[in-house]
Design a protein around this nucleic acid. Structure first.
Lengths: 204, 204
DNA sequence: GAGGAAAGTGCCACTGAGGGGCATTCGCTG
DNA sequence: CAGCGAATGCCCCTCAGTGGCACTTTCCTC
């Protein structure tokens, strides 16, 4: 995310993107997602609506820009990391690494994004789709690197289970108002992953 | 779903709902989701657009009516079934029971719905949200019945894992063109659930 | 450093999803 | 069959999202 190295054109685009994402998150949080029109947003950032749609494919996407940061770094990490031992453990490591690469302020934005998700079904739906797309991409990368089939049941389930653990951690963290900040989220993450074995056997 | 017993008013509503869902699925499959406007749909069914929105909350929802049938029966089953042994096994039983209660033709409609999901991101997003809502509702019902906390990590994960297995089964079944019909789907379901233990330990 | 290609932006008009309000019709009940 | 409440149709509105085209900016090349 080092802007200084890019050509001017790219820098401007990145800045517009960031301004839109930040302002959107603020407006959506302050006065609600539906209650905020795109016209208000683009007026505040001083770009045209056309430019908005060249930067983000939809109103929901701009609300989820913070999620996107994490997932793209996560996927890049999955592509290059050393993979040994259980897939779920590798997944946990990759998420922890990705979280460690987020800039200051990311945790706060992420908390606001999750709160938004909890309140607005349309945003939650888009968020789940992102999650799902990431899951699929992760399965493909892992399958390629481990020499397994793309449709391998165990591998797919291992990734889905890991994502479920991640989501549970994020959900409880959000419910508690982002308690402990980023380290708090990491704690919950470890806790959720540690609970996986017992989840498989939990009985009535 | 026995219409004859209901008052005329309710019967009409149910018939309108069914006509909308069936026609929508046919039109969306034939000419695409985006390419079909709601005006075309309501013209074909001969109701006003206003009535459409009193029956379904959105265009995506009418495409997912078939999913809805399954999930509502499933949740009802979770609320009354006898729960013994592992939660994942109970979940599998509940899904099998719900599938057994679907009417003739459901499998075909479900296949068309899944194909639609695979092609249209917006529909997939709504489908994932349904899935997620169902998951939460199932966790709450199970928590209440097993005397556990709503936020219990193991229980939540157990349900999420089960849903992941279900989704994997449905996905491969759809990819293979609904091979084997409903029994074929049940086979894949058993297979996916059987793979859960190995998924937790799958290693590089 | 001038000039042209290429990429990005703004403006305008348009479609389609979705909702509010109100009059009308329809089914139920006494 | 009269009257009440529920469901429907119709009209009008807002807003997300797209296509087209003219204009500006950045970049590349000579």
């Amino acid at each position: 995310m080092d802007l200084r190295e890019l050509p001017l054109r790219e820098r401007k685009k990145a800045r517009t993107r960031q301004a839109l994402a930040e302002t959107a998150l603020r407006l959506f949080t302050e006065k609600g997602f539906e209650a905020t029109t795109l016209d208000e947003l683009v007026d505040a950032v001083e770009v045209s609506k056309r430019t908005f749609f060249r930067t983000f494919p939809s109103k929901e996407d701009v609300a989820l820009a913070t999620d996107n940061e994490l997932w793209s770094v996560f996927l890049a990490e999955v592509a290059v990391m050393e993979i040994r031992g259980p897939v779920t453990a590798a997944f946990l490591t990759a998420v922890r690494t990705a979280l460690g690469r987020m800039d200051d302020g990311w945790a706060e934005r992420f908390l606001a994004t999750r709160a938004l998700c909890a309140r607005v079904p349309a945003v939650e739906a888009h968020s789940l789709r992102y999650c799902n797309d990431t899951t699929r991409a992760a399965v493909e990368r892992l399958a390629a690197r481990l020499g397994r089939d793309r449709g391998d049941v165990s591998l797919s389930l291992a990734v889905e289970i890991s994502i479920a653990a991640w989501r549970h951690a994020a959900l409880t963290w959000t419910d508690d108002g982002g308690e402990g900040g980023l380290p708090g989220l990491l704690d919950r993450l470890d806790h959720a992953f540690a609970a996986i074995p017992s989840a498989v056997t939990v009985s009535a």
